[in-house]
Structures are given as structure tokens and as C-alpha cells.
Nucleic acid binder design. Structure first.
Length: 1143
RNA sequence: AGUCCCGUAGCUCAGCUGGUUAGAGCGCUACACUGAUAAUGUAGAGGUCCGCAGUUCAAGUCUGCGCGGGACUACCA
């Protein structure tokens, strides 16, 4: 324990970072911050697991600073904060990394490298950068519990995932279905969107397109459409893939789009028809000139076809109307051929009515499902449901279909087309010149009066990067979680979550939930959590395994049945949750693939080869991080759900969703109560940071250079977390200078004088009411600050918290309190005023350290400790073990804060006036004059009078009242009061008020009301409707700002001049003392060379000068040698001063 | 294409439930201060508050339509 506050020679936040880190490590402060809160209420934070196979970037510093702030804050509030670290270890990025490393492609897996070797490489690769991550975590001061992090590839973690999947399976929410995915018939494989986005995949191709006519069925729903129709009534829809028309089961219209009904003739058959299409597109199908043609004059074969718009509908009017199947090859099994709404329908091209073939379009499938429309499905000879096109890209041959199905659903007309390839490219025997299926189908429609327009059209279409042949969108098998079953519940629960910002919750996330589709869980990959489902070959029986125990038991049965020779997991002890026990087994591929189980009827069961979406891994972390329910069932209750999570806004449909979905399905609960979704960190020009562009900022370098405090402070205070941050290292430096520099200076100032005076805070607190105005003012502001900052942290607004602290430190504490208080600390007796000054400043610093410590944990801990080790006000070793300050409402004095604001404004105004007339602040002046229009204002001024006068170096204040007659007044309308009352007349009233004369104003004031004559209206206004200000004091030097008016008397009398000169001498002598490196406390002897300009002044103020400069003697001498003395210049007159240290 | 965020001084950002002179910091220019001094203070210049239309007595603030930047989702007749 020391009784001197440490004084530093230099201010190096990078070094402080290292010193404090060392202290934390030695004292084990992080663990203490938890152990000291043992038994207290918990605050649960979930760490979104980063992937350790990528290097951490500067944006991680930002995201983790946000996380850290609230965990530290809650610790200070007395909570036991749970925050387990974790690693995300599965997924495509890992696989790609390994492939790059080994120089292989997906094709090689199973050929030149076994799945076993491949996955072993992934396991090793994925933890590549853990050291780097741990290092960053440490250096940036992110306190997260790394003792026992959860790792998603751990068998225990996977076991929990299996358990959760089993629970979902048991509820009937895990099922096998299909999704429309890009598929290459030529390669016989599905393509990922990643593969499709390879350069060159999208190519312009010329295809036959067809605008088909769908005949409207006349019934109750469509009756309104049938007025004034000639010929048959049709919906028109356009397609670039006519081969999908036989699979059409619906038409989609845009709800807000306007549609026209048009009478005309079919250009191919000449039959009279009436068609419906989007109003905006009428002109692209009909030449406007032809509108004038007489309908009756048309003869088949005429080039010019007349048309007439006869009605208008909205999309909603059309919804529900039915139509006849366009190409009745195969009958659908369920509701079909109905007009539905499609949110994505536009009038950019086509007809504004979209042909829907749910088996060949992802959007089609989605809107059809929502409207309850079935897809067009065939049953093949194995009894499997199939789209009309087989895996090789051709219409199914009749012999490949189920006979009973053909009998019941397939029509004669299909037979002519069965077996045809949908694209000539898929058939080796065909060339581009051969007739395509598209053309043949279009010709057929033309003949049947069902095609309105058939033409070639060039459009961009994706191609397979391996075969160069066109891709089909095709339904492929997938496993789904039926999230739609809990959609409503998820929406309800979402409303209870506090989202920062709110818009992400109700907007982005809320909309996402509203349009929720089932979660496609399948991934055809190698390195990930295997789907724990075993099926018989015909799919008649399946098993979802929910634990290793169950798997072991099933394996034993399979061995008994003779399907497996031995248990690959032999030696594993069921129920032993130790790490090494679980390391004996591997639940990954290929091991699980080799397990063949036995069905109840004795058949073999094989594992469904898919892996599950890695987002399930991370979304299940509340459970899996505890290996729940296999162990830690008691702990789990404590850490579910989370009080707080924070990740990038890009996780909205990722982690945020999967957490929410799994918690809703498993526990009918939210997974988190409060959430911050933060924006991106961009470079200073607003571009995305990337290593490739070379604009990425290295977090390690930045921390090394600046320390993490200014980095964190800058990131948090510069932009709201949810806004994108334009990251500029210049800004970090600014924060260092402006905020930390000022705070450090304030501390240094305090330490310097406190050590001189031996202040250690051991004397009792000076009662608040005995402290001077200035002290009570800063204490009031400090308490306001505690209140505000507490509220900000409480409502997850770190930016406001940081900005408020910064404002307090730089503006109020440093620039006003310390600046005005400086003289109170210099020399002299240890009076009560001095004690109060020390106590007040010390309290402020101590409190600021606590308030700011969640954001800037390093410097604030040093500041706290430096103060606390001398004062011993608290027993805590670290600010992070301290309690968050509580504000005292009684100490907040808004009136005091207000009048100090007036003092600040008044001072700045007078300083401005002085500058205008070039009168230095060191030159004392006699008085200022302030007009007072009411007593309350005078009382305010009176209370802060001394502060103002000393700040501006003026002797006196004089109040000018109304009766003095020298004040010129200004009157302004109060719009807020007048507006609601007089509305439209505001402009006239404002004009009339500003036109009032001095006499009018005086009369108004004494009467309390005033009659305005506006045209023939008479309006009575009261004093509440206006603001009356003093504007000018004629004949004086006046400043006027926001209602405050001050005049300055600039007469300099001899007395004032002498005092000014004395002050100049003090200033020069102090400078000399300092330049001579004297201690602040050294006594000196002074000699000043005589000069008629100064002598009187020096003699008159001899005591004053001596006092201020700690001079034991002051003598005026006739001459001084220049080599001993210093030349000074006062008002362009030179003299010599000698300052000698007294021995 | 849809959903969401952002657009205010050269730069980074404030601007509460609409109220009439739109603010701060940095940078720039000038001046001042000097026992907190590799600090500090004061002032000045610098704005069609992205555009257009609307609501209103009154719009940076509310509504609609655009434009620009970004994120996510989707890839379509």
C-alpha cells in the first residue's frame, strides 16, 4: 500500500494494455469475477461459436466488444454471468479449406482419398487458428469462459443433436420430402448455388417461348369475369420452358397488379377469343393502332387483328378462378388449376400471369404449397413419386411408370410424347437442328387454339460447369424439419424478445417467420453431423436414433441378425460422460455409414446418407454445450434461455433463426431474451473489408499500436452497433487523444497535487451542502451521468453510454470543473475548500472508471486501482469486481446544472467580446451588465456570479432592470403555443408580432395580453404565446446569444491597468520558473529591472506577485545583467527579470 | 426481385413525441492561453438535411414514389 498516487511519465495505452493483462492473469481476475458472484442470480450469455478455421478480423473485435460490455456490466451489477466459449467446426468452409490444402476436388473423395482420411484432415484443419483466436480473445480483453469450450464435432455434442432430432422426429416434424434444386441430368448430380455462381455458368441461349391460353372455367368464383366476352375466355401466361407446361398446376397473379380483359382473335386459328393479361403488357401483345379496327370486320388470316379492352381487374379479383388443364397428359392428384397470388409476380415481361409448375421451379413450389396446390406427380414402377421428367432429362416412358397409375391418371395423348428429352442437349442422338420438345408442344397448342404467341427468345440460363449442358431445376430428396408447424408460435414468442434494433426483430426476422417454409436440413457432404436416420431399402420402416446408448443397442441387434460382424464402438461405456470415453468412438462419416441396422421385419436398414445443416449445430448450442440431457440437467435449467446474445445482422436467418426454431420446437420457449444484431465493419471508404482487396485491418497490429481500449471505445461510440461502421484508424487515434488523453491528464493533474498535499481521502467526506457551487455542480452531473449510463447499459445502448461518459469527461470534468478549480489546488493551506476539491475530483474519477470499465476494461482498471490503492475506499482489487455505482437522486440538482450552463455560456460570450476589442483575459475589467427581466433569472446569475467573474477576469456584475430604460427588447412568437390555437393564421400572426414596437411590447407586458388586428379578425394573445428577450443595450459592447444578453464595460482605469501588468509579471515569472525546471513548491527570490511603465504597478501589487510566484523577496533594481536575467516583453515594452531559487 | 438498414458540413456522427437561426468532433484558417502543456480555449469559413410529390399553419423529423450505398433471402415466367 502506498500513500502516493502513481504519476506516469508518458501515456501509453498499449503498455497499459499489457500491464493490466498481466495483472489479470496473475490475480486470475476473470475467474474471481465469477467466483465472487457465486450464488447470485445468473445472467446468461450465449456465445455464437466462431469457426476456428478462419482468421479473426477487426470486425470480431467489434462484435466481441459488444458481447463483453454487457457481460462486464452485469457482473458489476452483482450477477453471476455465464458465458461459455465454443467453436463451430463443421461445414463447407472447412471442406473447401481442406480441398485447397490437399489440392483435391470433391470428385477425388472416395477415389484418391477415402472419406476417413478426408474427415481426419478436416478435423485437424478446423482448429488451425485456435491459438490466434485465443490470443485475440485475451488481448482485446474479451472475457468469455474458455476453460471448457463446446466443440461441435465432439461426439457428446453430436449426441445431443441426435437427441434433439429424435424429439423433433417423435413429434412428426422431421420428414423426407423434396426441394427444387439445380440439377444436371448430364452429370446426374445436383449442383450447389456456389457451383452455379461460377463465372460462365449463366449463358445466353435462344429458346422457343410460348404464350399459352388457359381456358377459364365458368363458375361462381369466375362469374364476374364473364361479362361481355366473345369466344372463349382465357388467362394468358408466358413461359421460356414450354416442356414444363404439361406439369402446370396453377397460375400466379400479383395482388397489386392491374389486369385487363381484352376481346380479340387468336392469330393462328382466327377464332374469337377474350383474354386476360396485365394492363401494362397489353401494348406488348397488341399494336395500339389496331384498337381502332372494327371487331366485326376481322377475317381469319388478316395481318391486323382488332382488339378491345373491355374490363379491368386487380390480381385479387382473379384469385380463386379455375381453369381447364392446358395439356392434359397426366391428371393431378389433388387441388389444382386455380389462380393464386404470387408475391414475386411482376409486369417486367410475359403477361403478368405466371405459369406455375411446382415440380420445376423453387418459387413455383413455394407459392403452390402456400396456396394448397398440388404438384404434378407421377408414380414410377418402384412406387416412388416422380416429376414428369426422369433423372436423365426425359419425360418418363410409359413402361417405367406404375401400371395402375398409368391406368388411372395418364391419358392417351401423353404416349406420343413419353420418352422425349426436354432439351436436345441431353440426347446424344439429337442435334440443335432437330425439333425440340418445346417446339412440338407449341405447335400442338397452336393447333388447339391454346397458343397466342410462339417465338424464339434469348435469355440467360444456367449451365453445368462440368458438362456445359443446361441445368434443370428439379425436385431432389431432402430431409426437412417442419418449422411451419410452429410458425405461429415462433411469431408469438418473437414478440417477447427485445431486439436491438427493433426493426430487425419485427421487420427482417418477423417477415422471415411470416413467410417461413420448412427447414431443409439435408446436406450432401462429408464433414458434419450425420443424420441419425436408418431406413429399409423400400422406406417402409425407419429409425431415428436419439443417443449412443440406443445406437449401441441397435448395433447389438444387428450383430445378432448377422448384418454386422462386430460393434465398431466396442469398448465405449454407456453412461460414462468422460471425454476420453467419448473419444473411443466417432459418430462421423464414414463410421456411421458402415452401420447396418435391422428392421422389425428383419430387413436391413441403411443410414440416410445426408449430413445435417451446420446451422442446426449452432442453433442447438443451448442444449449441446451442456451435453444435455445426458448430463448437466441441473445446470441446464440455469442457463436456458439466454438473457443476451449478440451477433452480426447477417445471422438473422442463420443462428438467430435456428436458436429460436429449436427452442420453440423442443421447449416451447425463446432461446434468448435480449439481442443485439450488429452491422458490418467497413473500411473508411465504406467498402467491405476483404483480404483480397487488401483493405482489411489487422486486429493484432491495431491492438499492439493503440491498445484495445481506444479501439473498443472508438468502435462502440462512433456508430450505433447496428449501423455499419466505417472503420478509420485515424478515429481510433482521435479517441485516444480526445477521451483517454483528457481523462489521463485529469488524473495526472489530480495525482500531482494530491501527492504534494498528501491527500489520501482519509479525512471524512465534506458534507455536500458545505461544498462550493462548482463541486455540487459536478457531483450533480456525475449522478445524472450514473443514471443515464445505467439506463443505457440496461437497454442495450452502449453507444449512448460511451458518448455520455465522453461528454462528461472532456467537457464538464476537464474543461470546466478542473480548469476553474485549478487555483484551489495550488499552494496555500489545506482548507476545507481544498479538501472538497480533492474529494470531489477523486470521486468523479473513481466513478468514471467504473462507468466506463465495461467498454474500456484496461485503462479503467488501472485508473481505478491507482486511485483505490491510496484511498482504500473499496476493498476490490479490480474495477471489474466492483459494484456498479448507484446514483443519488438527492444530489441531482437540475436548477444548478441549468445555471452553470448559463455561466458557461456567459463566460464564453464575454471572452468573445474581449477578443473582438483585443483585451487580453489577463487585463482585469470593471464590470459586465446583464439585463434581467425576471427575478428568477437574477437569482440564477447571482449564484454563479463568482464563477463567471473569475473566469472572465471582471470585477463586478451589474443587473439592469426594466425600469432602467436602457434595455431594448425583442419579441418572438412561440410557435408551439400559437400553432395549435390559430393554425392557418400563423404566418400573419408571426408577422404582426415581429412588427411590434418597443412601446407595444411594454404595453403587452404590463397588461399581460395584447390584441392583434389581422384583417377583420381580432386576436388576443397572452404572454405565454410569445417570448420576450432583451436584445441590446444601446451604447455598450453587447453580445447576444439564445436569450442571454451581456454588455461589457471596456474602460481600463489606471488601477485596472496596474493589476493587469502585475498579472503579466506573474505569468512571465511562472514561465521562467517552469523553464528553469523548478519544483512547484520551490521558493524564489525575484529581481525586476526598473522601467517607468511598470514600476508603479509592481510596487502596488508586490505582495500579490510574491504570493502567486512563491517569492520570498521581490526587489526593483536599476540594472540586471542579461546573462543572469531573462528578457520579457509586456505590451511591447521590454524589461529584465531574474528568478533565483532560494537556498 | 423481395425484406431490412443507412443517406445531415470536406470526413465521422448527434438531432427526443413535427415548432421557424440544423448541432458536435476531426480537418482547414485566424487568434488567444500557458504551473494539466507532446495539452488547451475561442472564433471563422463550410449545409438545396439524397431527389420529387404529398399531409400540415409549420417537415431534417410523418406518408408515398424514386435514386445511391450495404446486408440477407431468392433466382423467376
Amino acid at each position: 500500500m502506498s500513500n502516493r498516487f502513481p504519476e506516469y511519465k508518458q501515456f501509453d495505452l498499449s503498455q497499459i494494455n499489457k500491464d493490466v493483462l498481466k495483472k489479470w492473469d496473475e490475480d486470475d481476475t476473470f475467474h474471481k469475477s465469477m467466483s465472487t458472484r457465486k450464488g447470485k442470480p445468473t445472467f446468461v450469455f450465449y456465445e455464437g461459436p466462431p469457426s476456428a478455421n478462419g482468421q479473426p478480423g477487426i470486425h470480431h473485435v467489434m462484435a466481441r466488444a459488444i458481447k463483453d460490455i454487457f457481460c462486464r456490466y452485469k457482473t458489476m451489477q452483482g450477477f453471476l454471468v455465464k458465458r461459455k466459449a465454443g467453436w463451430d467446426t463443421h461445414g463447407l468452409p472447412v471442406e473447401l479449406g481442406v480441398e485447397k490444402l490437399l489440392g483435391i476436388t470433391k470428385e477425388d473423395i472416395g477415389k484418391s482419398i477415402t472419406v476417413k482420411e478426408y474427415n481426419a484432415a478436416c478435423r485437424k484443419e478446423v482448429m488451425k487458428y485456435t491459438d490466434m483466436w485465443e490470443d485475440l480473445t485475451h488481448k482485446m480483453g474479451y472475457w468469455v469462459n474458455m476453460d471448457d469450450p463446446y466443440i461441435t464435432y465432439d461426439n457428446r455434442y453430436i449426441e445431443t443433436l441426435w437427441h434433439l432430432l429424435r424429439k423433433i422426429y417423435d413429434k412428426g416434424w422431421l420428414y423426407k420430402g423434396y426441394t427444387i434444386q439445380p440439377y444436371s441430368p448430364a452429370a446426374g448430380t445436383g449442383l450447389s448455388s456456389h457451383e452455379l455462381n461460377q463465372p460462365g455458368c449463366y449463358r445466353d441461349v435462344k429458346d422457343t417461348t410460348c404464350t399459352a391460353q388457359f381456358k377459364v372455367v365458368r363458375d361462381e368464383a369466375s362469374e364476374k369475369l364473364f361479362e361481355d366476352v366473345h369466344g372463349e375466355l382465357y388467362f394468358m401466361a408466358w413461359t421460356t420452358t414450354p416442356w414444363t407446361l404439361p406439369s402446370n398446376t396453377a397460375l400466379a397473379v400479383g395482388p397489386k397488379i392491374t389486369y385487363n380483359k381484352v376481346k380479340t382473335y387468336n392469330p393462328y386459328t382466327g377464332s374469337p377469343i377474350t383474354v386476360i393479361l396485365a394492363k401494362d403488357l397489353v401494348n406488348s401483345y397488341f399494336n395500339p393502332k389496331n384498337a381502332k379496327l372494327e371487331m366485326a370486320d376481322y377475317k381469319p388470316g388478316d395481318k391486323k387483328i382488332p382488339f378491345e379492352v373491355v374490363a379491368e381487374f386487380t390480381g385479387r379479383d382473379l384469385e380463386g378462378a379455375r381453369y381447364e388443364q392446358l395439356i392434359p397428359f397426366v391428371k393431378p392428384d389433388g387441388d389444382a388449376f386455380r389462380v393464386i397470388l404470387g408475391d414475386y409476380v411482376t409486369t417486367e415481361d410475359g403477361t403478368g400471369i405466371v405459369h406455375i409448375a411446382p415440380t420445376f421451379g423453387a418459387d413455383d413450389d413455394r407459392v403452390a404449397k402456400m396456396a394448397g396446390i398440388v404438384p404434378l406427380i407421377l408414380i414410377d414402377k418402384d412406387g416412388k413419386r416422380q416429376p414428369m421428367v426422369d433423372r436423365t432429362g426425359k419425360f418418363f416412358k410409359i413402361e417405367d411408370l406404375d401400371a395402375e397409375f398409368v391406368e388411372k391418371f395418364v391419358t392417351e395423348s401423353y404416349k406420343e410424347y413419353a420418352g422425349r428429352f426436354v432439351k436436345n442437349e441431353y440426347d446424344e442422338s439429337l442435334t440443335a437442328d432437330d425439333a425440340t420438345l418445346d417446339v412440338d408442344l407449341s405447335v400442338m397448342l397452336k393447333k388447339e387454339n391454346k397458343a397466342f404467341k410462339v417465338e424464339k427468345h434469348t435469355h440467360s440460363y444456367p449451365h453445368c460447369w462440368r458438362t456445359d449442358k443446361p441445368v434443370l431445376y428439379y425436385p431432389l430428396d431432402s430431409w426437412f424439419i417442419k418449422t411451419t408447424a410452429v410458425r405461429e408460435r415462433m411469431m408469438e414468442l418473437n414478440k417477447t424478445i427485445n431486439w436491438k434494433p427493433e426493426s430487425t426483430g419485427v421487420g427482417r426476422f418477423g417477415n422471415w417467420l411470416e413467410n417461413l417454409v420448412d427447414w431443409n436440413l439435408s446436406r450432401s457432404r462429408y464433414w458434419g453431423t450425420p443424420l441419425p436416420i436408418w431406413r429399409t431399402e423400400d422406406g417402409s420402416e425407419e429409425k431415428c436414433i436419439g443417443s449412443t446408448k440406443e445406437l449401441m443397442e441397435e448395433i447389438e441387434k444387428a450383430i445378432e441378425a448377422g448384418y454386422m460382424e462386430k460393434n465398431p464402438y466396442e469398448g465405449f461405456e454407456i453412461g460414462n460422460n468422460a471425454k476420453d470415453n467419448y473419444e473411443k468412438i466417432d459418430l462421423h462419416r464414414p463410421y456411421v455409414d458402415d452401420i447396418v441396422l435391422v428392421a422389425s421385419n428383419g430387413e436391413k436398414m441403411f443410414r440416410e446418407p445426408d449430413l445435417i445443416d451446420v446451422w442446426f449445430d449452432s442453433g442447438a448450442m443451448p442444449y449441446a454445450q451442456q451435453h444435455y440431457p445426458f448430463e448437466n440437467t441441473d445446470i441446464f435449467q440455469d442457463v436456458f434461455p439466454a438473457d443476451f446474445i449478440a451477433e452480426g445482422v447477417d445471422q438473422t436467418r442463420g443462428w438467430f433463426f435456428t436458436l429460436h426454431a429449436i427452442a420453440t420446437m423442443i421447449d416451447d420457449s425463446v432461446a434468448f431474451k435480449n439481442i443485439i444484431s450488429n452491422g458490418l465493419v467497413l473500411d473508411k471508404a465504406g467498402n467491405k473489408m476483404s483480404k483480397r482487396l487488401g483493405n482489411a485491418v489487422d486486429p493484432f497490429e491495431s491492438i499492439e499500436k493503440y491498445g484495445s481500449d481506444p479501439l473498443r471505445w472508438y468502435m462502440i461510440t462512433n456508430a450505433q452497433p447496428w449501423d455499419n461502421l466505417k472503420f478509420d484508424l485515424g478515429g481510433v487515434d482521435e479517441v485516444r487523444r480526445k477521451f483517454f488523453g483528457t481523462l489521463y491528464n485529469t488524473y495526472s493533474f489530480f495525482a500531482l497535487y494530491a501527492n504534494i498535499d498528501g491527500f489520501t481521502y482519509e479525512r471524512p467526506e465534506v458534507p455536500m451542502e458545505q461544498r462550493p457551487e462548482l463541486d455540487r455542480w459536478i457531483i450533480s452531473l456525475l449522478n445524472s451521468l450514473i443514471k443515464e449510463v445505467g439506463e443505457c447499459y440496461e437497454t442495450y445502448e452502449p453507444t449512448r453510454a460511451g458518448r455520455a461518459i465522453s461528454e462528461f469527461v472532456t467537457e464538464n470534468l476537464s474543461n470546466w470543473f478542473v480548469r476553474l478549480s485549478r487555483r484551489r489546488y495550488w499552494g496555500g493551506e489545506f482548507t476545507e475548500d481544498k479538501l472538497s476539491a480533492y474529494q470531489t475530483l477523486c470521486t468523479c474519477l473513481m466513478t468514471v472508471a467504473k462507468l466506463a470499465s465495461p467498454i474500456a476494461p484496461f485503462f479503467m482498471d488501472q485508473l481505478y486501482s491507482d486511485l483505490n490503492e491510496v484511498t482504500n475506499k473499496e476493498e476490490k482489487q479490480s474495477v471489474h469486481l466492483a459494484n456498479f455505482p448507484e446514483f443519488d437522486e438527492k444530489l441531482i440538482d437540475k436548477a444548478l446544472e441549468e445555471r452553470m450552463a448559463i455561466a458557461q455560456k456567459a463566460s464564453s460570450m464575454v471572452l468573445g467580446l474581449r477578443r473582438k476589442v483585443k483585451l487580453k483575459v489577463r487585463q482585469p475589467l470593471a464590470k459586465i451588465m446583464v439585463p434581467v427581466l425576471d427575478e428568477a433569472f437574477k437569482a440564477q446569475m447571482e449564484a454563479v456570479k463568482d464563477i463567471i467573474l473569475s473566469e472572465i477576469n471582471v470585477k463586478e456584475i451589474e443587473y439592469l432592470t426594466d425600469s432602467s430604460g436602457v434595455i431594448k427588447k425583442k419579441i418572438k412568437p412561440n410557435f408551439k403555443a400559437l400553432g395549435p390555437k390559430y393554425g392557418k393564421m400563423m404566418k400573419q400572426i408571426a408577422g404582426a408580432i415581429s412588427g411590434m414596437s418597443q412601446e407595444d411590447i411594454a404595453g403587452f407586458e404590463s397588461a399581460g395580453e395584447f390584441a392583434l388586428q389581422l384583417g377583420d379578425e381580432n386576436i388576443n394573445i397572452t404572454l405565454e404565446d410569445v417570448e420576450i428577450l432583451s436584445e441590446d443595450i444601446p451604447g455598450w459592447l453587447v453580445a447576444n446569444e439564445g436569450g442571454l444578453t451581456i454588455a461589457l464595460d471596456i474602460t481600463v482605469t489606471d488601477d485596472l491597468k496596474y493589476e493587469g501588468i502585475a498579472r503579466e509579471f506573474i505569468n512571465r515569472i511562472q514561465n521562467i520558473r517552469k523553464e528553469s525546471d523548478f519544483e512547484v513548491t520551490d521558493k524564489v527570490n525575484l529581481q525586476i529591472m526598473k522601467n517607468e511603465n511598470f514600476d508603479d504597478a509592481v510596487l502596488k501589487h508586490k505582495d500579490y506577485i510574491s504570493n502567486q510566484t512563491l517569492a520570498a523577496s521581490l526587489t526593483l533594481v536599476d540594472s540586471l545583467k542579461e546573462e543572469n536575467a531573462r528578457k520579457v516583453d509586456i505590451d511591447e515594452v521590454e524589461t529584465l527579470i531574474m528568478v533565483e531559487k532560494e537556498c
